[in-house]
Design a protein around this nucleic acid. Structure first.
Lengths: 212, 212
DNA sequence: GTCCGTTCGTGCACAAGTTCACAAGCGAGT
DNA sequence: ACTCGCTTGTGAACTTGTGCACGAACGGAC
């Protein structure tokens, strides 16, 4: 793979790629066989130049005068993002939020499968959910290591989040999806994305109510 | 308010402010009365210069040699973000996701209160939840207008999301928290923030597995 | 085979955001 | 009252990301 020869791709570009995949998939499913960067652009809400620039980091995918082949571009980006396989994920916290995440259909058709669930509460430990059982957070590090899990989801209260993150990282996790409203301190090789609806809402009130 | 005289504050600055509020609140609750930009910076994981620059868009809040008064800076930013009041919010979609959102404790202590819930499914309509009842999506536009709601949460399937967004916007909504995996097309005065765990995960797999 | 409309990939200029670095200001200690 | 250590607020330099604009190339029509 040319992976090692593309060292300096901005993270912001990587963050847009899933959007391209999603949109291309929708187009392909509607039997649109070709798209120009222009078409894609206003479907997605970015400029055509940006799409072309983003893609140019990884190679040449289009044909002049024709545009991009919908399905094959989708597959190319899927491969770049390594979404052409299934990733096992560890979920920490089986309270109401953890419950909702575990039952979320949407992981199913995607490239992610919850492969282990951990909770501090001994009452919940052992309780089975489909294939897997709830484990004690004591075994988190070792179990994550045993299963080769690289992705963790944190759905525990803020006060415990850092501790849980540390345990995950010790086990080999390098990507964390953090539902706790706290800034995790992690080594530079670990990536964290925040899911925080309150935060998101708080970034919008600033603009409200300034007359119509 | 000096609001009208601060026209050009970058959105990215606004997005960081809630983080400052959250962190300052935590510090104040731990009886830390003063913070320097340096302290705050490594609590939050940004540079001290950035914090000082961000704040400078809004005025002067610190004292040389001393730093910032934790509580009063927290309150100042809270006011800037207009979080010193309660905002009524409309929730569209009362499936399992909508359920989880409606029951989410975390809205409680924040500045947001779910003031109306809508669903397309007639079976759910009428079903009460605490103070409020589920309404038909038919009344969405008029009810949102009647209650003066400016914030909407979309928790319906992707296929219906655009339609729901339009109805909300017609009713006067200017800020949307979108849980549906689709790019909403909205007029420029409407702001949308995405909550999409799958997307978030997909932006991290790129970096995984490249040896240790 | 040539023309013509379309669309890509990219050099370059521009814009936006971040960091540096320092003068000014505060307060504690003497 | 003066000194000294510390920390702010901000001009200026720098870095990063975006958009423009155009040469090259593809394919259909004639």
């Amino acid at each position: 793979m040319a992976r090692e020869f593309e060292p300096d791709i901005p993270d912001i570009v990587i963050r847009r790629l899933p959007l391209y995949v999603r949109t291309l998939r929708a187009l392909a499913d509607s039997d649109v066989a070709n798209v120009s960067s222009d078409d894609l652009a206003d479907e997605i809400g970015v400029t055509a130049a940006q799409i072309r620039r983003d893609l140019s980091y990884f190679g040449k995918f289009g044909k002049q005068g024709k545009g991009y082949d919908t399905r094959s571009l989708e597959q190319a980006i899927t491969q770049i993002l390594q979404l052409d396989r299934e990733w096992p994920v560890a979920l920490a916290g089986f309270g109401s939020l953890g419950h909702a995440i575990a039952h979320y259909r949407g992981f199913g058709p995607s490239s992610f499968r919850i492969a282990a669930i951990f909770d501090r509460n001994p009452d919940k430990v052992g309780e089975p959910l489909g294939e897997i059982a709830i484990l004690s957070d004591q075994c988190m590090t070792s179990e994550i290591r045993r299963l080769g899990i690289e992705i963790g989801i944190i759905a525990v209260p803020a006060a415990e989040a850092q501790e849980v993150a540390n345990a995950m990282i010790d086990g080999g996790v390098q990507s964390i999806l953090n539902y706790a409203p706290i800034v995790l301190k992690t080594p530079p090789n670990v990536r964290v994305r925040e899911i925080d609806p309150i935060w998101a809402l708080q970034t919008m009130t600033y603009y409200l109510g300034v007359g119509s």
